[in-house]
Write a protein that binds this DNA or RNA. Sequence first.
DNA 1: GTTGGGAGAATTTTT
DNA 2: TTCTCCCAAC
Length: 644
Amino acid sequence: MTDYSTLLNPEQCAAATAEDGPLLVLAAAGTGKTRTLVYRVAHLIEKGVPAESLLLLTFTNRAAKEMLERAKAVAGPSVGHLWSGTFHHVCNRFLRRFADRLGYGNNFAILDQDDAVSVLNTCMKELGYVRKDFPKKEVIASLISSASNRMLSVQEYLDTSSKALEASPSDIVRIAQRYQERKLIENMMDFDDMLVNGLRLLKEHEEVRNSYQQKFRHVLVDEYQDTNLLQAQMVDLLAAHHRNIMAVGDDMQCIYTWRGADFNNIREFSKRWPDSRIIKIEQNYRSTPDILRIANACAAKAPEAFKKTLRSTREPRNKPRVLILRDGDEQSRAIITLVQRYLDDGYSLSDMAILYRAHFHSIELQMALARTRLPYVITSGLGVFEQAHVKDVLAFLRVCENPRDYLAFTRLMGMLSGVGEKTVEALWAKLGGSFETRSPEMRAKLVGLLKPTARGQWQGVDRLFADYHSEGLNLRGTEAIERFCETFYTTYLHRAYENPEKREEDIHELALQVTKSQGGVAAFLQEVALLTNIDREYEKLAANNEPTLHLSTVHQAKGLEWKVVFVIWVSEGMFPSSRSLEESGNDEEERRLFYVAVTRAKDELILCAPGMRKMRDGGMFFCKPSPFIKEIPRENIRESYGNR
DNA sequence: GTTGGGAGAATTTTT
DNA sequence: TTCTCCCAAC
């Protein structure tokens, strides 16, 4: 038996080796939460719990992967059999087996954000909501999403939310219903449906519920403070039989309420599990005392239910800096100067990160970095898989795999010149609402329906459909994509987009990616929507060893740490974001976000506050340093002005 | 019905 | 300033 008390501190050890039964672990930032979870897994396996009866839910794929690797290192390769991943991933696994019980096909397609909005748009047009003053499709989409993540009907959600809308609730309810129908008919689920239907499966189908309840002897949840109502119920249900639930989180780090996260899940955990134990982990191993004092000062002003004070284990070093700067350009120059100084001090570029509230805050800096040729990676807003050209290629594969995928069909046919929205709609209707590429008759019928000009372009694709199935290209996705490009897409790409070379590279990379997925094209398509850009960026980072500066939003930086952390645009209106403050209740979340940003830093923390924004129209906008800066006890910082 | 050009709006966080 | 959507000309 491993002696965990030599590897972990007493608090961590208590959590990792706790007896069976419900357990809530309140682990503040930088206290070795991942380490504790890893050793918990190792401990359970050592005790003889089979890996496949462990369920480890994490917030990102990255966290899942990291934990799995570390657990393997500690407890051996058998750990690989445990179930781990995001809620969406786990639901996906459930639904791939049982979606048919809810009226979907098990090969349903997953809609990403854009797909969802465009399906919704179709519904709105269909129902005749095209008035100018009608709320935008994105607004409706977010309403519907908010409702499902809070487990309310659209009607109920509209009743409780005070937002003024240019539409009557009944109109929105009608649109939402139509949207729901369409997804069912076309065999598609959006991100929210994955959770909603995953939970429905457990609630409504007793034998499914029983089998998973029996199967998972231990359920472990990371970042529990960011679960929403659906997720909390799912966890409770899955753990109901064996009653071994371990929720790990920190209510001060709840930064996803805008997406439905509800920290009452963590606050009221002991009400739902009355016999649960609570373990607090407060020893911070990450940051210097001065950095933690800033974090503690920030947390002290938050009306939190669980008071935690971070205790540093480290010796004092340099005090954090606050830079008061003229504008964004001066900020960029100051950062580059400091980065170079830290390099001279012996830090590597990969020890440093630059964090910000919103992606657009980083644009000036990106240009400045490019000019000085400092290599950087940015976990960008748009995912690789969300870019138009990648979706074009995926549409081809989707049509091959799923005859009911109208969205993909529209996208694919729309690439033919001379074919637009109306034509596709008519074709789809004439085909009877599905297009089976396996059927020669169906394909011939489509060819027959096309106008001569379109037919010429389509012929290559049509032949490829035949080959796809007869030659087993569904198991050789790389080849399928390459042939699609040869016969059709490269030509289209050059016609339709401005920078075809860059896009061709992306597609080449996509083609390589398909092969990685074991279950062929079908499995790849199922995974693709759930794979985020972040995961891929990190893979790239791991693959090339060149040290790189890291740019990221605070949200995406959650769970990560660097020796040197810059936070830029800590100015009024930017951080806290004025847009967010407009909505009531969000000011506390901004505070938590700042707390998360500060606690990413190990040695050096630099807060930058430019005093002027250049607006897009050329105007200027003056802003004071953020209120978060004013709260910091003076003795914990070095303050400086200008580009030094 | 399709396509391209021009006017207009607009700048959060993501599975 | 850049992207998006709408309208008017093929």
